[in-house]
């Protein structure tokens, strides 16, 4: 049965982005509509532990029937962390949707508790745009 939220998502939005703070398991039990994404992105830090957590999340997402799950390597100090993400994600079988560089503008915005100001964080914005293009392509590929 489709929930009213599900209907609103289908009819009133082209893209619904769900910040899944409660975690996949919680949402799958009681969040219904919100748990079942077309695409799931797992945000990871440049640490082995974080990428392993990503791999576990992907396994759980597959069990739940989420069709496409990708890791995103965040806070990457380039160029070393790009290689680290690629290598370790490969080891754990985590497909990457993109790598987002660490950016002083983002750190500053976090400190101030404000959104990233227009014109700031160009490299981060470019990386995010690439992820959007990647996701679009994956969805087109799926028909």
């Amino acid at each position: 049965m489709r929930s009213l939220l599900g209907a609103a998502i289908d009819e009133e939005a082209d893209v619904t982005l769900v910040d899944m703070e409660a975690g996949l398991e919680h949402l799958s039990r009681s969040g219904g509509t919100l748990a079942y994404a077309d695409v799931l992105l797992v945000i990871m830090e440049p640490s082995r532990k974080s990428i392993l957590t990503g791999a576990r999340t992907i396994a759980l997402a597959e069990e739940l029937g989420i069709p496409r799950t990708f890791g995103v390597g965040n806070k990457a100090r380039l160029p070393d962390d790009a290689e680290f993400f690629a290598t370790v994600a490969g080891e754990y079988g985590v497909p990457l949707a993109g790598i987002v560089p660490q950016d002083p503008d983002v750190i500053e915005a976090d400190r101030l508790g404000t959104p990233l100001a227009p014109g700031k964080g160009a490299a981060v914005r470019a990386a995010v745009a690439q992820i959007v293009a990647f996701v679009d392509k994956e969805l087109v590929g799926a028909g």
Binding site: T16, D19, L139
Partner: peptide, 18 residues
């Protein structure tokens, strides 16, 4: 299209979601 974003605290999940 529904896009879910997950990640442990401190990974920058909310910043990237926005």
């Amino acid at each position: 299209m529904k896009l879910g974003v997950v990640g442990k605290g401190g990974t920058g999940k909310t910043t990237l979601s926005a």
